[in-house]
Simulated assay, not measured.
Amino acid sequence: MNKVPILMNIKTQLSAELDNATHAAEQARLAATDDQSVAETQYDTLAIEASFLAHGQSQRAEQLMQAIAIIEKLMLQNECHRYIKAGSLVVLSNEQHQTQYFFIAPVGGGMSCVEGGKTIKVITPSSPLGKAMLGKAIDDDVQLKLGHKDMEYVIDELY
């Protein structure tokens, strides 16, 4: 299975978040430097708050740019894996024979995309399911405990 369309989808979602963060940072910067934001008393902190917000949004934009660079690197490494690691596309099934698709990426956890009629969830290696899957191969069991619920999967396919 070709992972490039999945990576392109993740990159598109990250780029949209980057646009939003960049726009928010610019709006906060403008609010911080606006004439209406000038402090009238020592308790008037509107400009200070706006500058903190601008700084935070700028940091978020920087993180998103780094995340996009990581995804672009993964695009160049479109290989199949024998063992699960970052960049793997994993097909799991549970005892009820329900199939789920997961793409393990260093960034973008929580995102999902539809490719070939299948919903693919993006998880990071540091997520509970990601940790449980790392290093496993086809036909291995994956056991996970979330709260009081025990879940068990079998790895059906690995790309």
Rank of each mutant, 00 (worst) to 15 (best):
P125S: 14
V114D: 08
P106W: 08
S51L: 10
M8E: 14
K85D: 15
T33F: 13
D156Y: 01
L46Q: 15
L158E: 01
V154Y: 01
N2R: 13
S51W: 03
D156L: 13
Q59W: 01
S126C: 11
T33W: 10
R29T: 14
H55S: 10
R60D: 02
K121Y: 13
G147I: 04
D19N: 04
Y159L: 09
S93H: 07
G87S: 07
G108C: 06
Q59G: 03
A69I: 00
A137G: 13
G110T: 09
K73R: 14
E152P: 05
L7I: 04
I10V: 15
A25R: 02
N2L: 05
G56M: 03
C80P: 10
K85C: 08
N78C: 06
I10E: 00
P125N: 09
L146E: 11
E115S: 13
A67Y: 00
Q59C: 00
Q66Y: 04
C113R: 09
F103V: 07
Q100E: 04
Q36T: 14
S126V: 12
A25F: 01
N78A: 13
N94L: 08
M133D: 06
P106L: 11
G87I: 06
Q13W: 07
Q36L: 12
R60N: 01
S37F: 15
V38A: 14
V142E: 02
L14E: 03
A105P: 03
T12K: 11
A137H: 13
S88A: 08
L129H: 07
N20R: 03
G110V: 09
K118C: 08
L30Y: 12
T45W: 05
V90H: 08
E49Y: 06
H55C: 03
L146M: 13
G110H: 10
Q13T: 10
I6Y: 02
L129C: 10
L129Q: 07
S58Q: 02
M65W: 00
A28F: 05
Q13L: 14
M65L: 00
G87D: 09
Y153P: 03
L92G: 02
Q27V: 12
G56L: 10
I48W: 11
E72K: 12
I120C: 05
Y153Q: 00
K11C: 08
G130K: 12
T33D: 13
S15N: 02
P125D: 11
R60W: 01
A25T: 04
M65I: 09
T119V: 14
A132W: 06
Y83S: 11
N20C: 02
Q96G: 05
L14K: 03
K73W: 04
A67P: 01
T41G: 10
A69M: 00
A21V: 00
C80E: 12
V107H: 03
V91S: 06
G116P: 00
I71H: 06
I155G: 03
